[in-house]
Design a protein around this nucleic acid. Structure first.
Length: 582
DNA sequence: GCCTGGTGCATACC
DNA sequence: ACTGGTATGCACCAGGC
């Protein structure tokens, strides 16, 4: 069986010949008791595929001994422990788990999945619903796709010729898929190698690690600082951003402003990694701002210089459509996070993060004050941005005030840079607020509808809510209004519930039961009954084993329910922002 | 039985 | 191996009346 691959890039990687791709087929999903029935593998060194079974399985150790990097899909939590339980020695290997690259199941947080951009411009995170090899392969449009097999076949002790053929075909496909995914990573992250040192490259850390860790390596590399970690240390809690509470209102004609890279540029402009030595002249706010620390004003520090250099470099790379701009973008976003974490020894200074947020709050609050004073009411603000009502003034007027604000702020920075601006993010025709933070809807001057935060756009919104929103969206743009009559929505609800009562269902993502503190939470109940995973449930008053006050049943069980049995309160909460208030 | 406030959890915004 | 705080909504639970 042949398949295409981008040989040039693969051959160019300095450690490709250390790589061994593998996959196990076992008689159980429980790693403690699973026996290995088949092993599939591909060696880059030998340029060969392997399928081992029966008496030959032990020969896999020879392949292991011959390779430094072990590549699999979910091998960290599944294949590797099973290998060890079955007497294979792998403890010194570099574990490359194609699944962990996308998602960190321990922290229950996405890793690289949200930053992987596909050729059609979409993001892998939105194109692949789950992190399964099947969904990922589909989204990445691989020429080989995941096969199907009845897993009971692996519980047998012997197989017919046809069964062996089927198993080998299935296993071979899985190995090829893992190989394609691995090579996709090697290709996609190729330009990231420019930002890290040789050791990082040889361990493939620039692909495997979290974005914070990658940023740390990149900053250390740029600043000639050692990449060392301190373990066990937790960061102290400190205050974060300022969020301005919104009124319940609609505002027409306004501008959304935001500070350009607020946190990174505050760090550089205020030298926030460079604590002033005893007796040295220092900056601590210039009687305009307040700060926790005292910072050197003799010279911009190495870290600050590096951040500023990266910021300027990204601008140029972006203009030239150079893919390396993405890695700098990650640096700039993750910088503030790593600066607050003592584990990143070379980037940690105790006051850096809390002064970054403190100065950030003061910048935004100063902007709010000045806009208001100049007759431009600030209706909302969050961290580095604010929405300003034009109130009869021109856009140019508002933009001049924004420049004025920055000018005054920079008067008091020790190292002001011209890239720091209060820039227009969007010109807004109409915006709706709901008296809550982080919730708003607007239509911009290009007639684009933007919805932020509302329950209806969250992943755990009801299907019905999502469906009705899709119907409303074009009408919102046509009407230039988000409000609808209740009778109209009632009609849609009736129609969809009649078509399929399960449409009221919502998705619940649950962790393994061990991840929960107790057994009473709804997530723990689901986890006990169905195990880790993503499930749809219908809240109702009648059936289902999940739930104490409401009951939750599966879509199949819901077929016996009537509309009056359903709990629709979550749906109505989602849709309320779109209803006229009496 | 109803209300309240605290807590755990998921998911969003930045 | 290893980035942060702010915010909402939902469900559960204990304690008050």
């Amino acid at each position: 069986m042949k398949f295409k691959t981008n040989n040039k890039i693969v051959l160019n990687h300095p450690v490709i010949n250390d790589c061994l791709i593998f996959d196990l087929e076992t008689d159980s999903l429980n790693t403690d008791e699973a026996n290995i029935k088949f092993i599939g593998a591909y060696s880059y060194k030998n340029e060969k595929y392997y399928i081992l079974s029966g008496k030959d399985i032990h020969k896999f150790q020879d392949l292991l001994n011959d390779h430094r990097i072990l590549i699999g899909f979910n091998n960290k939590n599944f294949d590797n422990p099973i290998l060890e339980n079955n007497g294979f020695a792998i403890n010194w290997k570099i574990v490359f788990d194609c699944y962990w690259v996308l998602y960190n199941p321990e922290k229950r947080k996405p890793n690289r999945k949200p930053i992987i951009k596909l050729k059609d411009g979409s993001i892998l995170d939105s194109k692949a619903k789950t992190n399964s090899l099947r969904d990922i392969s589909k989204a990445l449009d691989f020429e080989v796709q995941k096969g199907d097999i009845d897993y009971k076949i692996f519980r047998k002790e012997s197989w017919t010729k046809e069964e062996i053929k089927e198993i080998e075909h299935y296993l071979f496909h899985d190995i090829m898929l893992t190989r394609l995914l691995f090579e996709f990573y090697i290709d996609y992250f190729d330009t990231a190698r420019d930002f890290v040192d040789d050791e990082n490259i040889s361990k493939l850390n620039y692909i495997r690690s979290s974005q914070g860790s990658f940023t740390y390596s990149g900053m250390c590399h740029e600043c000639n600082l050692p990449v060392i970690f301190a373990d066990g240390k937790k960061s102290e809690k400190y205050e974060g951003a300022f969020v301005l509470e919104a009124d319940i209102c609609r505002v027409d004609d306004g501008i959304y402003f935001d500070f350009t890279s607020l946190y990174p540029l505050l760090m550089t402009q205020c030298n926030l990694w460079s604590i002033a030595r005893e007796g040295e002249p220092y900056w601590n706010g210039d009687d305009f701002f307040t700060t926790f620390g005292k910072y050197s004003i003799n010279e911009m520090g190495v870290r600050e210089k590096a951040v500023y250099k990266f910021y300027k470099q990204r601008k140029i790379l972006k203009e030239n459509k150079d893919p390396r701009e993405l890695w700098i973008k990650i640096f700039l976003n993750a910088l503030y996070g790593i600066s607050s974490s003592p584990i990143f020894v070379s980037m940690f200074t105790p006051t850096t993060a809390k002064d970054t947020t403190l100065l950030g709050r003061q910048c935004l609050q100063y902007a709010v004050k000045i806009f208001n004073e100049y007759g431009l009411p600030v209706r909302y603000g969050d961290t580095d941005s604010c929405f300003v009502e034009l109130n009869g003034h021109t856009k140019q007027y508002a933009m001049r005030i924004a420049d004025l604000i920055v000018e005054e702020l920079q008067e008091h920075f020790p190292f002001p840079v011209p890239e720091f601006q209060l820039k227009v993010d969007d010109f807004i025709k109409s915006i709706w607020f709901f008296g809550k933070k982080k919730f708003y809807i607007y239509i911009n001057d290009k007639n684009k509808l933007v919805i932020k935060g509302l329950p209806i756009i969250k992943g755990n919104a009801s299907m019905l809510g999502q469906k009705i929103l899709d119907i409303l969206k074009p009408q919102i743009l046509e009407n230039q209004d988000i409000k609808f009559k209740k009778v109209y929505i009632d009609g849609l609800v009736d129609k969809y519930l009649k078509e399929d009562i399960a449409v009221i269902g919502q998705i619940y993502n649950v962790k393994p039961i061990t991840a929960y503190k107790g057994t009473s939470s709804i997530q723990a109940q689901i986890s006990i009954a169905y195990g880790e995973g993503s499930y749809q449930f219908i809240a109702n008053k009648k059936i289902g084993t999940i739930g104490k006050s409401k009951k939750y049943c599966t879509p199949e069980e819901a077929r016996t329910l009537e509309v009056k049995d359903l709990c629709l309160d979550k749906f109505w909460n989602e849709i309320t922002p779109f209803l006229y208030t009496k």
